[in-house]
Design a protein around this nucleic acid. Structure first.
Lengths: 200, 200
DNA sequence: CTTTGCCTATCTGGTGATAGGTAGGTCCTA
DNA sequence: TAGGACCTACCTATCACCAGATAGGCAAAG
């Protein structure tokens, strides 16, 4: 019946740290994230996802009832992981310079470790063509980025300057990922990041 | 026969200024450009394009034999227009500040006049999922941007600094378009652009 | 005895692409 | 000035897939 369909499956996000289960759901998400980060939202299909795992597309629908649900789950997981890595890297950083450096490094790692741009950078570009739930999850990620950056700004600055600089940093790094990915040249990212950091 | 297929149709790009013919091909390109800039490469289909013009999808294939051809034509036209506008706007600008301002303004207009991000920003993000011809056309556009920016840098800077700053400016503006489009807030773009300009 | 994690089978509709046709126009030659 | 050759700008019809999604089943585990 529809009762089974209504009840959300797997709705508890695995926040537990000691979690070792690389279950089907997780592998599906890994595969989907990679595809989206390389080719965009429409580059993932339930069919291909299923093929990659050796299961059937209907089984993917078991884990994510609609594609939209997959998209939102992906952004949420990405955001969680991003800030977890960022906090670890920024841990102990006391100066604004050190915090900004940690931030840039986090983005750089995201770019180099998977040879693909930021999940939210990709989805952000595609905003108008996405289900609302997905694009607003992306917006939430960006807002969190801006808040983090504002807090990381030098104490002396007035709020307006902090906000402006935060927008600039995020924009520059997102753009740098895209650029350096398209041009297949990491030095483009590094150059942009250096200028960003030099700007205090 | 295949003879007719081999002969390229409409291969002369209309570079003439006094050209008033808003022919089918041009309208097709306008429609396709808008769709791509909003939803990405996969957001345009020959079917929808045809419907928008009241013709059949097969007729779209008459103008663009493959989708890839349409993509390349779009990027070429976009690049031509972008630099035409940029040159006009930068005409008479003598200082590096004025040139950079003209550059930022050109991007801002691209964003606001169509309420969509840069065609090449979108396609650049999707690079890995595009036909090679399309992504390399995009790369050419970016390279031309960087060259223009390097030339626009203050005379005093050494070449390496010019290159780095050029990458930064392009990255920041591209990222700012994406960000401000996703967050539906033009002030994000303006803030980023201000910081870019303030950085000399 | 229910839940979990998959399966088969199927539906509806969209995709790029091709083959082949046609009405109307231009242009060259006799 | 008439005929034929060729071009333009579409058309119809069809192909071979691929998309997301759903219904219903079934074996194993709790």
């Amino acid at each position: 019946m529809t009762l089974a369909a209504v009840k959300p499956i797997y709705w508890q996000v695995n926040t537990q740290v000691g979690d070792q289960v690389p279950d089907t759901r997780e592998i599906l998400m890994d595969t989907a994230e990679r595809s989206i980060r390389l080719g965009g939202y429409n580059a993932v299909s339930f069919r291909e996802l299923a093929d990659a795992l050796g299961i059937k597309s209907a089984s993917v629908h078991y884990y994510f009832r609609k594609k939209e649900d997959l998209g939102v789950a992906l952004v949420d997981r990405y955001s969680q992981r991003f800030f977890a890595v960022l906090e670890k890297r920024a841990d102990g950083a006391r100066t604004a310079e050190a915090l900004l450096d940690a931030y840039c490094q986090t983005y750089r790692t995201a770019l180099t470790s998977s040879d693909a741009i930021c999940l939210c950078g990709m989805l952000g570009a595609e905003t108008s063509g996405l289900p609302d739930a997905v694009s607003s999850a992306v917006r939430t990620f960006f807002r969190a980025n801006l808040e983090w950056l504002v807090d990381a700004m030098p104490k002396g600055l007035d709020p307006a300057a902090k906000t402006a600089r935060a927008s600039h940093v995020l924009a520059a790094l997102q753009g740098a990922m895209m650029l350096s990915h398209n041009m297949d040249d990491i030095s483009v990212f590094d150059a942009a990041a250096e200028v960003v950091k030099a700007g205090l």
